[in-house]
C-alpha cells in the first residue's frame, strides 16, 4: 500500500521555535533535579507534560522526545499528568522534534519544585543545537531572528546527468558555530545534507525558501530520451 510521505520531506520552511518536519533542537541538561517539559503550540496552552529526572547516577546520556507524539498522548490525559517520564544522567542531551503536523510545536522546561521556567525552545541559549535537513532545491534565507543575522543558502538541484552510473551518498552534515553572526554569508548544500547550528548566544533560527529551484528546463526531455533509449535497447534484444 502507498505510504504517506513523512513530514521531513514535505515541510519546507523550518523554525527552531516551532518544530515541524526535519527541524530538531538539542538542549543539554546540566542541572540535577526534577523538571517538567511542557509541550505547547500557543502561548500558555500546555498540550502535554513530560517529567524529566536528571541524576548524577543516571545511565541515559541522551533522550529523544517527539513533541507531536506527546501532543497526541496528552490529548487523552488529565491536564498536568505526565505523558512520559524520563530519567537521564547529568549532562545528557535532550533532542526535541515533531514527527507529524506542520503547525509547529515548542517546549518549555520548568522546575518541578516551583514551576519556574528554566529554558524555552523558542529562544535557544549557548550550546543548544538547531539541526535540520534541507531537501527541496532552491534558495533559502537562514536567519537568527534575535541578533538578527542572515545567511543565504542554496540547496543545489541534483541533476541526474551529473551522476550517471553513480550512486550518490548522503553527504556529510554541515556543522556551523553561530555567534552574533553566521560564519559565512552564503553557502551551497546538497539536498539531504544535514545542518547543525551550534549556538553561541541567544537564537531563534528560521530557514525559509525564497526561490524554488525546479531543475534544468531540458531535464524532462532528457529523461524522456533516456527512457526511449532503454526501451529501444530492450526491444532490439526482443527482436533478435
Amino acid at each position: 500500500m502507498p505510504t504517506t510521505l513523512p513530514s521531513a520531506f514535505t515541510q519546507i520552511d523550518l523554525d527552531s521555535g516551532a518544530l515541524a518536519g526535519s527541524a530538531n533542537v538539542v538542549h543539554r541538561l546540566n542541572e540535577v533535579g526534577d523538571w517538567l517539559l511542557n509541550v505547547c503550540r500557543k502561548e500558555a496552552v500546555v498540550l502535554a507534560t513530560i517529567r524529566l529526572r536528571v541524576r548524577e547516577d543516571g545511565t541515559q546520556l541522551s533522550a529523544s522526545v517527539d513533541l507531536s507524539a506527546a501532543e497526541i498522548a496528552g490529548s487523552t490525559r488529565y491536564l498536568g499528568d505526565p505523558t512520559l517520564e524520563l530519567t537521564v544522567r547529568k549532562g545528557a542531551y535532550l533532542r526535541l522534534h515533531a514527527s507529524s503536523g506542520q503547525a509547529g510545536l515548542f517546549a518549555v522546561l520548568r522546575s518541578a519544585k516551583d514551576e519556574s521556567v528554566v529554558w524555552d525552545s523558542r529562544q535557544l541559549v549557548s550550546s543548544d543545537l538547531f539541526v535540520f535537513l534541507p531537501l527541496r532545491p532552491g534558495h533559502y534565507l537562514l536567519a537568527n531572528l534575535i541578533t538578527p543575522a542572515e545567511c543565504g543558502i542554496a540547496v543545489l538541484y541534483p541533476d541526474p546527468r551529473d551522476s550517471i552510473g553513480k550512486r550518490l551518498k548522503n553527504p556529510d552534515s554541515m556543522h556551523l558555530k553561530v555567534g552574533t553572526n553566521f560564519p559565512v554569508k552564503t553557502m551551497n548544500l546538497m539536498p539531504g545534507q544535514g545542518v547543525i547550528l551550534d549556538t553561541r548566544g541567544p537564537a531563534r533560527f528560521t530557514f525559509v525558501l525564497q526561490t524554488p529551484d525546479n531543475g534544468p528546463l531540458d531535464l524532462a526531455d532528457w529523461r524522456k530520451a533516456q527512457d526511449q533509449k532503454a526501451w529501444a535497447t530492450l526491444l532490439a534484444k526482443h527482436r533478435q
Binding site: 502507498p2 531537501l135 527541496r136 532545491p137 541526474p160 550512486r167 550518490l168 539531504g192 529523461r223 526501451w231
Partner: peptide, 29 residues
C-alpha cells in the same frame, strides 16, 4: 504508482540520485 509515493519532481531526482538510476523506468526495469 511510484510517482504517487514521491509526488515532487525534485524529490524524485533526489531519490534517483541516491538509487543511482537516471529515471524511474530504468530503476523498475
Amino acid at each position: 504508482q511510484m510517482l504517487a509515493l514521491i509526488p515532487y519532481t525534485w524529490l524524485v531526482d533526489v531519490v534517483l540520485g541516491l538509487l543511482g538510476f537516471p529515471t524511474i523506468t530504468q530503476y523498475l526495469l
